[in-house]
Simulated scan of single mutants.
Amino acid sequence: MRIGILGAGTMADALGTQWLAAGHDIMVSGRNPVASAALAEKMTTAAQRPGAPAPGVARAGTWAEAAEYGEVVMVAVLEAGLHDVLRAAGPAMRGKPVIDVTNAVGPGAYDVTRSLAELIADSTGGQVVKAFNLCHVDVWRMTPPVFDGRPLAVPLCGDDERALATARTLVTDLGCTPVHGGGLDRAKLLEATAAFMIGLWITGADAQAVLPPLAGSGTHPTT
């Protein structure tokens, strides 16, 4: 599929390169056209893997061009510049699957009353799915992200089944397992989880050890 990426930073690089290697075509966009073009070239080289099928095609464009190009659009920009980027992207995201990987960063930056994913949905008219926001960029560079024999699980929060199906495809292309996290109204919980867990990791705590495995988490309904 064609993936337009709003952003030309590390998340765009890591996820975009993996999807290129899986055969998808990518357009990255950023504030600096020269840097965006250099990133597209770097991703093309990195996606070429011995013995694997030929990767997709990477190119660079403006915010508006990337939003128009993608059958699905990923938003991977800093929260501080989000409004300006969405305004520059224009109306092309309306009705499209939109993957939001953003997190608010810095002390007090997280707003418990409204998720960035809902803001993006309201601003663009896109069918937004919150995903890929819980892990450091280095995790998304792993091929695949597997820990103690278990593929990484990626929660997805969204309302539109077509957008969710697209997100599930992109998750499995990374070698990860998609997990239904509820509707877009629950994206604020996913963003809050990121804010809390990142804080633990920064202090040196093993955030994964906070929760027990499923088998030790109590008795749960089967339906």
Rank of each mutant, 00 (worst) to 15 (best):
I3H: 03
G4N: 13
G4L: 13
I5H: 04
G7K: 10
M11W: 05
Q18E: 14
W19P: 01
D25C: 05
R31W: 04
V34A: 05
A37G: 11
A37R: 01
K42L: 06
K42F: 00
G51C: 12
P53G: 13
P55M: 13
G56D: 09
R59E: 04
E65L: 04
Y69V: 05
Y69A: 10
M74K: 01
V75D: 08
A76G: 02
A76I: 12
G81P: 06
G81I: 12
L82Y: 07
L82N: 03
H83Y: 04
A89M: 08
P91S: 11
A92S: 08
P97H: 08
V98I: 08
V101A: 05
V101S: 08
T102Q: 10
N103M: 12
A104F: 13
G108C: 07
V112F: 07
R114C: 03
R114P: 00
A121F: 03
T124A: 04
V128T: 04
K130S: 11
L134Y: 05
L134N: 09
V137F: 13
V137E: 15
D138C: 02
W140V: 06
M142C: 07
T143M: 10
T143Q: 04
T143N: 14
G149Y: 10
G149N: 07
R150F: 10
V154G: 02
P155T: 15
R162H: 11
A163K: 01
A163S: 15
A163M: 12
L164K: 12
T166F: 06
A167D: 09
T172N: 03
L174I: 12
L174E: 04
C176T: 06
C176H: 06
T177G: 00
G181D: 12
G181K: 09
D185C: 05
R186N: 12
A187W: 05
A187G: 09
E191T: 07
A192C: 04
A194C: 06
A195Q: 00
I198Q: 11
G199P: 02
G199K: 05
W201C: 00
I202Q: 10
I202N: 05
T203E: 15
A205F: 13
Q208K: 09
V210F: 09
L211A: 14
P212Q: 15
P212S: 14
P213N: 14
P213M: 15
G216N: 08
H220P: 00
T222F: 10
T222G: 01
